[in-house]
Design a protein around this nucleic acid. Structure first.
Lengths: 260, 260
DNA sequence: ATCATATGTTCAATATATTGGACATTAACG
DNA sequence: CGTTAATGTCCAATATATTGAACATATGAT
């Protein structure tokens, strides 16, 4: 069902693709699984999964954990991810920016990016309010559901956007459908204004603010605030200013390469 | 030369292994490279590297960056690494522990783990002293060169240790050779005492402290202090106490699985 | 202009990776 | 006990991934 991309007929799958399908699946499940379970749940031949899991184990990409032969993402992935992070030097300044934002606004602040054709919260700083945020770190969310989504695809043409976002992602959690044309209009507006705010369309009580973190001419990420509706509307201008300042401070950094 | 494992004859290489060789190579180089350069430097057929790079690009494991078709580790790796990290919930408490350590001692504090058969600094908090640390985050260092190394292999038998550590890693940066038997003795001592300290054997001016962070009965990681020799000797007992307290606070956490 | 080097693309041959299915083992269960 | 389900291993067949080599293009030096 949720296979990565083109997976129609009964051809053999390429090992590399299957391998990363396994990794993504484990990430999504967020728990150690037996090879057999993996095979059953992603609909892959068991022998293939056993073969690949063993290869990945040998490479440190997967690790035995949880006993009973269960495997989960391995340390090597952590190191590779850290190298990615390091290269752009995001995190440190990012955390600082979120900290500052949370302090200034007392609202929940998030740093968001695309993960494939989904939206994902990469870092989050919970606000001081007694307020529950629904989105979990690292969870994939359809792009059209989010304020940030408008910004993260703003560098594409209309056609590219519609080709990029899976059609079913325009269906909101309640079941209603969001008109793609309306979405595109909002994308253009967001791209032009340099921010996007709206009453969340995935719940009935939050107001969302998003501003882009620019890198190489397009929104590489966004900074967001998720607030109670009344607070958000009452402090709209101030919050937007805070966000833009924070984003500006981040937008400089990512370009420069780091040498040890 | 430094191929991953068994790479003798002129057989064809498996795509998956080659792929991770590419990823590791990029991590080591810490910069974006052209596919052609990668092929030349890891000694792989160009057509294979181009094929694999394209596959990895399609999966978000690699990304174009730096222009001219150069590629580097991709965002997907970051997400996978974050999931690994999350699963063990290390980082947050880890950063806190380093912060505390650095505050208490004003020395450089490190969180270290094994990466394959090498030692690696995963997190570091620079001390308040005007003092330069040589080790860089994420760089691979021979196990015998480090105090932590004694602890990180302490759960293995002598034979396992000698099979695990590449023989040439017993050669110190100066060129002298460390006697494996002497190393094993230190490993046993470290395992027994629950810490290891020594005047660094890779430079002439630092004293190193290491204590284990236990997980599932063995040292999954270490906390370290790197200090000027005189300071280290003068504050030895206090520093060791700080380290042990910090390690104890971390040793609890990693076992419990997290549910959203 | 000529040559050399670096870079990327294309393609056919074959070495081999993926796969289905058989088999082995264990646990659960009536 | 016999049956079913879950899990892991093994193996041969074949679909295909890896590879060398040829080709294409750009750049820079002489």
């Amino acid at each position: 069902m949720d296979a990565i991309a083109d997976d129609a007929g009964g051809k053999r799958a390429r090992g590399l693709d299957r391998a990363f399908e396994i990794l993504d699946f484990l990430r999504q499940k967020r728990q150690a699984l037996k090879p057999n379970e993996i095979a059953a749940q992603i609909g892959a031949p068991r022998s293939s999964v056993y073969e690949l899991v063993n290869l990945l184990l040998r490479n440190g990409i997967l690790e035995f954990t949880g006993g009973d032969g269960r495997v989960y993402l391995g340390r090597k992935l952590y190191f590779l991810g850290a190298a990615y992070e390091n290269h752009f030097d995001f995190t440190r300044e990012c955390e600082a920016a979120l900290e500052r934002l949370a302090g200034e606004t007392r609202e929940t602040a998030q740093f968001c990016m695309l993960d494939g054709n989904k939206y994902t919260v990469v870092h989050m700083r919970e606000g001081a309010r007694p307020f529950r945020i629904s989105t979990d770190i690292g969870q994939s969310v359809p792009i059209p559901w989010t304020a940030s989504g408008r910004l993260l695809v703003a560098h594409m043409t209309d056609e590219e956007i519609l080709a990029f976002i899976p059609p079913q992602d325009f269906q909101l959690p309640g079941g209603e459908w969001l008109d793609p044309q309306a979405f595109l209009t909002e994308v253009r507006q967001a791209g032009h204004e340099g921010f996007f705010t709206f009453n969340s369309i995935v719940d009935s009580f939050t107001h969302c603010f998003a501003v882009p973190v620019m890198d190489e001419g397009h929104a590489a990420a966004t900074l967001c605030l998720v607030t109670p509706r009344d607070d958000g509307l009452a402090n709209r201008d101030r919050y937007l200013t805070c966000l833009k300042d924070a984003a500006a401070s981040l937008s400089q950094a990512p370009t420069r390469p780091r040498r040890g």
